[in-house]
């Protein structure tokens, strides 16, 4: 069977090393420019993506980032989904609080990414993994 035709508006980037964090940043920047986000909005969504890509690597043991350009009747923007099959987050509300960290970070990543995004959702299951979706549009 022929592989499905890739959608040019969707990019998937595997997150396995620190280099992949830079790759995610560059891809998100490219999509944000393409869709015409302002410089501040570009910077916010790229920074949020950088935080979440690092979380995926450090806490999720690696995973996948899917970057999608959203164009519908009312808005245009960039949506990014981060998925890992890591240990999951026991208390999501707690993890979103500033300063909360279980690792070597500053505890700004998850809550900071939420503040920098206009759309944010998180689903996590212990032992199964975590999925975070963010978007920023105009």
């Amino acid at each position: 069977m022929a592989p499905p035709k890739p959608d040019p508006g969707v990019q998937a980037i595997a997150i396995r090393t620190g280099d992949d964090i830079v790759r995610v940043r560059q891809a998100v920047r490219g999509s944000a420019v393409e869709v015409g986000l302002s410089l501040v909005d570009q910077t916010k969504i790229v920074t949020a993506a950088s935080e979440l890509a690092r979380n995926t690597l450090d806490y999720g043991g690696g995973g996948l980032a899917t970057i999608e350009i959203v164009r519908d009747a009312t808005r245009r923007g960039v949506r990014i989904r981060f998925e890992d099959a890591g240990p999951g987050i026991a208390d999501v509300e707690l993890a979103l609080k500033p300063g909360y960290t279980t690792g070597r970070g500053m505890g700004l990543g998850l809550g900071g990414a939420r503040r920098l995004s206009s759309e944010f959702s998180i689903a996590s299951e212990i032992g199964k993994g975590t999925r975070v979706v963010i978007a920023r549009g105009k």
Partner: peptide, 14 residues
Amino acid sequence: MRPAVAITLVELGL
């Protein structure tokens, strides 16, 4: 520091 970076940093909480 670029202005957009400053705005983003503060919103990030840093």
